[in-house]
Amino acid sequence: MMKTRIYFGLLVFGLLWSWAPLMAQADNYFDQGKELYRAERYHDAIKRWEAVLSLNQQSSALYFNLGNAHYQLNELGPSIYYYEKALALTPNDRDVLANRGFVQNALIDVNQPMPKTLWAKWNEQVITLQTTKQWAIMAVLAMIGFVTLFLVYSWSMSSSWKRGFFALSMCCLVISMCAVLLAFKSDQFAAQDRWAIIFEPELILRSGPRASESVVFELHEGTKVKILSSEGNWHLIMSQDGREGWVLAESMWEL
């Protein structure tokens, strides 16, 4: 017992010891970037903030600032890319939505998403209520609840208590199974829900994953597209208005 306590203490200490300076460093870079941005040295500000990313640290604020800096440099593709990243972390951030609106105005293609069916919308809403990890944790917690309640049920003598605990335990089991199902769905959805931002000023989409294939249509920088599948170095993408075509993977950044 004493031994485990020591190990646990060491672990916490180790984590703090490795985390704290990392966070401090990230804050340091972040503040330097702020100063550079204020001085309109946007290139340098971007470098600072990207240094934070290389520390494996991220935040919605950081992505938002990167988006702003790129917008100031009229680099629409990276700007949209970072705003989308920020929105992935904080989907309803008003500032991000507002500034992304500015960039979207300056894009060549109109990002008008396809209307979805009511079922698809509802399905997506339910699945994206929580992340896959959260669904998984929920499944585990509900399972533990089920087992506990079941044991209590089998232990208790009185039939009315028994009935109550049994019903509760079954509820927990159903919740757990639903959560596992939703975690699977969410995992699958996340695997399918691949988006990318185009970085080429003019991107030609082809009918097959080869440069010799015929041109289907073209998209421009900053347009958000869905990646449907990949073949070697090529992605089959779908634009927001539902047209499909193949492009080289390096012409866009996956979100």
């Binding site: 640290q57 991220q58 935040s59 604020a61 938002f64 500032d95 507002a98 500034n99 990890k133």
Partner: peptide, 22 residues
Amino acid sequence: RGFKYIKLKSDWQTIKTKPFFN
């Protein structure tokens, strides 16, 4: 309402979280 200025505060989180599900 114009273009918003950068954010001045940030809460950090690690970029790559280990997968738990499955």
